[in-house]
Design a protein around this nucleic acid. Structure first.
Lengths: 116, 116
DNA sequence: TCCATAATACGACCAGCGTCGAAATAAGGA
DNA sequence: TCCTTATTTCGACGCTGGTCGTATTATGGA
């Protein structure tokens, strides 16, 4: 039957123009979701869902990825069995200038203070 | 009994150093509370509680003022019968650089787009 | 073809939050 | 002293959202 070899599963992403501030704020208000964003920033590379550290079950984590994706904060794509995640930092910067960097900086500052 | 003539009622405000990002994000995630912040910015002067426009009852509005105050976003003080509100913008900027301005700008942009 | 791994879907539960109205409090003025 | 205005307190209610466990799907490799 020659199943397609690549990218059978697709993911929908919103155009940033149709995302409003409320959605982004709701996405970023959850501490687990900010952990996801922070880890993406810290690693500096795309990460599969399974590589994130968070104090919740994997099904809950899936939910958080969905919220982040629907708010335009992350982009997801499949690579074989795994699903990769990347920040939509540039697009978000254009839509809501300074917002994501400020949140990221605050996260980093708190993480640093906590570890000091 | 010579009751004190001024400022009998006092208000407690947190030191910004003891406010964490979670608190500020939770304060700013509510649209009514962002309306309060936006109106303070737009007017450019301290406003009494009764002057704000919001689609909720006054008792609900009192609740929102409390949340904003406890998160260090606004400062409140009594003037006679009324209670005044002012943004703690400078202090907040020192604690979480860029956060409040980014949110305010996003609010203004959406308000402008909506009115256009 | 079968199995192991990665991630999702689904249903359920529970806590927290925003909301209201009514009653209470505080200040100022008549 | 009484009344009016501004704001708060309190209790109640409903809804949303984060959480979990289990079952399911998709992919790649043996």
């Amino acid at each position: 039957m020659a199943r397609p070899r690549t990218a059978a599963r697709t993911v929908d992403h919103p155009d940033l123009a149709q995302v409003d501030l409320q959605q982004v704020m709701e996405a970023l208000v959850d501490p687990v979701r900010r952990m996801v964003v922070s880890q993406l920033v810290r690693k500096g590379e795309d990460m599969s869902c399974g590589r994130f550290e968070a104090p919740v079950s994997s099904s809950t984590l899936t939910h958080h990825f969905n919220v982040l994706r629907e708010a335009g904060v992350i982009r997801q794509y499949y690579v074989g069995v795994t699903k990769m995640n990347t920040l939509r930092a540039d697009e978000l910067e254009e839509r809501f200038p300074g917002l994501l960097p400020a949140v990221i900086a605050a996260c980093a500052a708190e993480a640093g203070a906590g570890a000091g």
